[in-house]
Design a protein around this nucleic acid. Structure first.
Lengths: 214, 214, 214, 214
DNA sequence: AATGAATGAGGGTTCATTCAT
DNA sequence: GATGAATGAACCCTCATTCAT
């Protein structure tokens, strides 16, 4: 397994300049491979993107890719890991913030929209290609996804218990209802559309909150 | 092109009642191929299903499949055509019914949920594999899909104009919001779950209507 | 063998009108199939022409073709048979005519050019696709072709013996030399070119005769 | 495209003498593939030769072939490129030599016969399979072929202008006449025949020159 | 750390031919 | 005489992956 020790440094180099002290190199090849793979998977789908295309786009050869990643599947898995981490981190932040639960739900809901749009390539892949992963990997991704949804559901549950939200619709169902809209963004959102990510987030969060009024 | 004259008979038997003179089976091979393809595409994804698997499941050889369909893509396209026809027909029925607009929106919204669940295999494929179609086919499917959404949007627009619905959220956006939930059904719905299709439809329609209150 | 009794009537119906006495029908389907096959083989090559294309062009179905012909190869063979018969007949006529041998060679040589151009589709196929025939068929075609060449060679031999032609070049070689030019016509001749078939025939015959001067 | 950098080394080893430092074999697999393909195409025709046969004969797998060549068509194209290069180079050499034009035409004519016989497999393919190439490739091959013919025609034109050759037959037509004999060699020449390549070349060149006498 | 030639299994598709009707 | 659904074998090609260098 050549990956365990480098995986976590994919997305940031901490702002350290190249002249920093004796830090290990930041693996620009690995990063480039992941970026090109993400772009191509989102544009053409996982199955329609060949390893050759990815390595050519990244300016390296196949051997280099297989040095950094176990397989093509592994590349896809990396995209998922990044997406899941990002969403979980942000939801935790909003859920654990102080303030009334309605405000926290609204903020979290708007944020997941904005975040999704800002990383639309990654999310497109996430929502479209999960069934391509190996069954085992799929299970682990699903489990983490479920934990994320449960966190959101519990937040809504808190609002129901405190009488802020209606309680005649199961909280689970509300989560499935709302996250459908999130998944769907990849299908219709265009950067040059009439509304900004922020505006869409506010509208969607507004619709959610309105539908939860007792 | 050996198909033009048989394609349209997939879903109906031309109105002839049972017992009519032209009793012989209506292309059972073609129907079986389409049924097995639908099942497999939904279960394993379009790209992970080989033509060999489809024809084996249908109990015929590849040549038979290529007698009825131009390509594997064509099989996928047939699923789409069926889905689009079904949805369009039903939406028209509900939109054109008499009664207050709020009732019509609620009924149409609930119905699309129920219909989607009742044909979940077809819809799973529809929502997950569109990007596999040939670009040209993709355009035509998208165009028809857009018309469908516009029909729904106009219904909501009618409610806005008559003051029944709020007008501070664009009707287009509401449609994208709600149909996200519809698309998402394929991801989480299980026939053995706690709620029936009808109940889910009612809940989702209820959430939509609540979020549209002025 | 469904063909033996109809084969010879492919090219002419003897000028008899359709109201002739009790003659058997002239098989328009068979004729149409052969005509379309010839056209398509010449245009796209034997291997690139499918049976489906041929029968579609002729406005019938596969079953009809297999009623009149044993196989796709058989269609090709028919083209050959027609060409061989035509060439042989005409060469015999010119060779057996009265007059000096030089005149007869010149006339036969010019005629084979004109005849080839007038039936260029058939000859293109002949010169290009012989190796597609079944080995046995190929042998018989080659044998007949050889007889044809020998007839021509003997004519030249006659001129050599009588001192009209040079005798320092083997007559066989002269035949191979000249018929190369005939075969080649299919490659470069265009009906809208500067020279007519007649003119080309005269020029080529002239070149041949000139090269044979003692 | 994995070929650009190796293609040109097919026929020579870069001028390095044996015993040089860079001793390792120059793409023996590629060379073997091309040699076997040439042999099989000439023997059985392009369309009747499967990729499997070629790679089996060369002792490798299909993947290896597709590493060196883009397609089966590409193999054919390589044969053409080699033939065209060879012919063009040799014609240039003879045309640009010093001496009377009649001598140069005779030498060039005899040489094209000898060269064709010495590479008969390649030329058989060339003259028989051109119509199998992709239309675009076909155009480029035809264009190069035309330039070659024009070079030869200009040589004859020179003889006409200087009164050495007759001028009552178009030079273009003479070229088509003579090269027909060249193309035809593949049909009848057998290595164990009575005449050597050299003898045939001399005879054919003699016939050509004789026919051009004023 | 990186190369790229080679593998080998499988993919979609074509097509001449047959045969029950 | 003619149909056209169905066969079955072959075909060209793709691709993730490996491994000697």
């Amino acid at each position: 397994m050549a990956r365990g020790d480098v995986r976590d440094r994919t997305m940031d180099d901490g702002g350290r300049g190249p002249g920093g002290a004796g830090e290990r190199r930041e693996e620009p090849v690995r990063r480039r491979l992941l970026a090109e793979a993400t772009r191509l998977f989102a544009a053409k789908g996982f199955e329609n993107t060949s390893v050759q295309e990815i390595v050519s786009a990244a300016g390296v050869t196949k051997g280099a890719m297989y040095h950094y990643f176990d397989s093509k599947d592994d590349l896809l898995h990396e995209v998922y890991a990044r997406v899941l981490r990002l969403q979980t981190d942000r939801l935790d932040r909003f859920a654990d913030a102080p303030g009334p639960v309605a405000d926290r739900v609204r903020a979290a809901a708007a944020d997941v929209i904005v975040t999704t749009i800002e990383n639309l390539d990654d999310f497109k892949i996430f929502f479209r290609s999960m069934h391509q992963l190996a069954p085992e990997t799929q299970r682990s991704v699903r489990a983490e996804r479920r934990r994320y949804h449960e966190r959101f559901r519990d937040l809504i549950g808190e609002g129901r218990r405190t009488g802020v939200f209606r309680d005649d619709v199961p909280a689970d169902l509300v989560v499935d209802y709302f996250f459908g809209s999130v998944h769907h963004l990849g299908t219709w959102f265009r950067p040059d559309g009439a509304l900004s990510a922020r505006e869409i987030g506010d509208h969607f969060a507004g619709l959610l909150l309105a539908s939860l009024r007792p």
